[in-house]
Design a protein around this nucleic acid. Sequence first.
DNA 1: GCACCTCGAGTTCA
DNA 2: CTCGAGGTGC
Length: 722
Amino acid sequence: MTGHDALRTRPPEALTEEEAAAELAALAAEIAHHDRAYHEKDAPEVSDAEYDALVRRNQAIEGRFPELIRGDSPSRRVGSKPVEGFATVRHGVPMLSLGNVFDEAEFAEFCARIRRFLGLPAEEPLRFVGEPKIDGLSVNLLYEDGRFVRGATRGDGTTGEDITANLRTLRDLPDRLEGIAPRSIEIRGEVFMEKAEFLAFNAKQAALVEEQARRAAAGERIGERARVFANPRNAAAGSLRQLDPKITAGRPLKLFAYAMGAASEAPAATHWDWLGVLRGWSFAVNPLSRLLPDAEAAAAFQAEMTAERAGLGYDIDGVVYKLDRLDWQARLGFVGRAPRWAVAWKFPAEQATTTLLKIEIQVGRTGALTPRAVMQPVNVGGVMVQHATLHNEDEIARKDVRVGDTVVIQRAGDVIPQVVSVVPEKRPEDSAPFAFPETCPACGSHAVRPPGEVVRRCTGGLICPAQTVERLKHFVSRNAMDIEGLGEENIQKLYDEGLVRSPADIFRLSRHAERMRGWEGWGSRSKKGTEESRKVANLLAAIEARRRPPLDRFIFALGIRRIGEVNAKLLARHYHSFAEWREKMLAARVIGSEAREELGSIQGIGPTIAEALVEFFGEERNLAALDDLAGEAPPEPVAAPAAADGPFAGKTVVFTGSLETMTRDEAGDVAERLGAKVAKSVSKRTDFVVVGADAGSKATKAAELGVRVLTEAEWRGMAGLG
DNA sequence: GCACCTCGAGTTCA
DNA sequence: CTCGAGGTGC
């Protein structure tokens, strides 16, 4: 729905070069957007077929205009979503994530929760199966009538990529299940590379890279670039992503099977027996897995694995404990996306020590001053780390972090580095406590910290260059205006050159095309030639492609405090058009006015958020910038969600429990499009409660109040989802 | 008034 | 992903 549909219906041959460039830019942006919606937010906005149509359109145009293929073309991307080759696959049963515990007390709490839920006395032992948690790639293997028919990556848990051909090359994967097999069954496993194999393989890769470099220097053409991998996990992932199964076949990949997904019949009554069944079907099951009679045995097993960890042939980051009895598993169900009957007991995060070189203060788009540690680069768990957030003033004081200190760092939640503590013995004599600045490092304005709040904020607002640049970055970002090719660096450059000071300026950039072409790397043919000379044209095309933004994106892009994606959508849906919204916001500046009441009556908008909006509209310069922008890029009204009739029109619907075929958010979107109002909790004004797996009190309440309860299947039927 | 849930904002690295 | 804080229902 980007306004390019008219163009898209024309065959590529009928396009002028300029049109083609513009459409490729728009397609790249749109596909990237969907990739994100699909992967990161778990909320695809288009069907797979629509998505594929976009990709095919992109390929068709690229085929006709090969010289226009963009550096960021979706067809080149090797990132999250493979665009050629791999199809997407929906798992029969979602592939879940696991809750984590880090010590015996947390594990005991996990056990206590199970007992509470099942109503078991403390004496009743909980029998677990412990399985080393390998750091590899989860895959889902579908067998029908005993034959391997499809294999997929985990993906976002709901849908993954079809990598059947690659998986067939694994020696550990039986093509056929021996003996009695259910008509249809999904088997989950972990694909990984052993440490020794990884080192040998990576050495080969390194040699290959070197050789390619030599040949390139000699002017030879080289095809696919070889690469070295940072760790076994990445190597395994890279190997499974190969479009050519022959390459995968040459990689030393292993597979351990460990769980069952959707199955036409249950092949066992306990998890332990199930592992036995898998072995019988000649799957490799981790031989270290063990049946543990009670929680004490689990704790002992954890200690044992901690000791043995270093000596294992592969990397593990903890042990997974699963309640053995499948009937209990079924009763326990799920909280969110994680089962209540299993947990990952993680080893302590890998730590490293390094020196703190300095503490930088970053200024965010709302003026928040955030301290950031700059450290001597150090390897933590296979990744070089040199920055870590210090969160805020209090955090620095609490840990008494000082410049020059030797600090212990770790990567929390597998990714984000954090400073754990300082090593006081190694502190230089002349060190002083860090003095958090009380003025903005970018504009010198006062930075204030309201009582009771943690964040200190620059009061410079519109005059602060750092805030202005951050707001511009936010404006063009993916979920906002989504202007492809306008990243952080380019925005900074355009700001520094004085070409862009406000969002509206972006839409006037075409006036400065000549000047931009003169910049090094923008159009001046320095080294690489062709691609750079296209940069300005591509950028302008990408900007044009966004000249009619949907109102919700437009509102979000403004970067008003407390107005994120969700609240922006609420506002856009409620006020429908830009003019209406603008007028009502101005009127709402008067406390007690009708417009203010209306604003507060929107579900999800409370007094604080209303206040933030009113504050924005109370600033004359904001209003001027807003109108300037709306003149350049007038927002399109969002379609009114109301459907005049149908079973959900005008009804209030509550979704509860975890739905299998979609997330609650997705379901909510569908319901809204059908004219329903989606609420979070059940009251007597609720018309329908849609109950997913493991619904809790809301389902009970619905029954008490006599509200109509729908199963997921019934809901899908009524909503016309088939 | 309190507990729970959801949203916003900020952040790192390959 | 994680924290803080706002909104809403009990």
